[in-house]
Design a protein around this nucleic acid. Sequence first.
DNA 1: CTCCCTATATGCATAATGCACATATTTACT
DNA 2: AGTAAATATGTGCATTATGCATATAGGGAG
Lengths: 129, 129
Amino acid sequence: MCKDYPPSQEEKECSCHSHVSKLPFIQPCLLLLLYEKPSHGYELMEKLLEFDLSLDAATVYRNLRKLEEEGLVSSQWYTQETGPARRLYKLTMDGEDMLHSWVHTIRRRKAVLEKFLKRYSNNFPNRSS
Amino acid sequence: MCKDYPPSQEEKECSCHSHVSKLPFIQPCLLLLLYEKPSHGYELMEKLLEFDLSLDAATVYRNLRKLEEEGLVSSQWYTQETGPARRLYKLTMDGEDMLHSWVHTIRRRKAVLEKFLKRYSNNFPNRSS
DNA sequence: CTCCCTATATGCATAATGCACATATTTACT
DNA sequence: AGTAAATATGTGCATTATGCATATAGGGAG
């Protein structure tokens, strides 16, 4: 892994791009969902299904707390409605910058997957669906 | 994570697909490279750069040993040429089946990334490069 | 009164990785 | 000859991330 991961706000990307291969996809998904609408963990857990992400509650809550530690989201308790208290998260400015940064990584990652699939097709032309 | 990961040889895919998000990309890359040509760890380490994968030697060697435990590759010491002995790996029949199985996962993973990027573009139309 | 859904959180075992380090062979340079 | 560097594989250790189980608590349905 390179030294400057996660990418700084100045560079918007790290220099070696090695994290393309270990993309912790839940993080950019949370940032995008929170850009669209402030939300809480339990709701986000369900929305993550749209990105084929597993719905383990512990993982979602811990990732949200981690994003908050990094200053990418902020939270406050919300008890207006019925039911248990919710921790309502919203995206910060740094979080929005990080979202844009992630997009570069994800585009590159997509290109790598395409490269793999093309190379596979070259070896197995009959299986290229 | 679902119970039937990795996918069995019968099903070719697991049922919940949650591993799409945690794709250990080094494994399918090793299988594809070994389909193209039997090789050893040090050489594979360099070829993995083509797929943007970090070149930590320990990770490569340990993944190869793991693939061998699972019966997807086989190895034998090779001392014909000059230099230190090499452990020469080649793909097994099960390994080739697993490679085909991985392709389904990677295609789905690619579709998820495209879904993310499209959703991002909807939110930031000016940034859609 | 109990069960289930909503909502958040912690503890523990497991798995995977990065880095440092160890070892051995051969080549290249001084 | 001596020493550094490239080739080649491997282990040990600390860190990190995850899944699963569990705990807690509010509120609605039967």
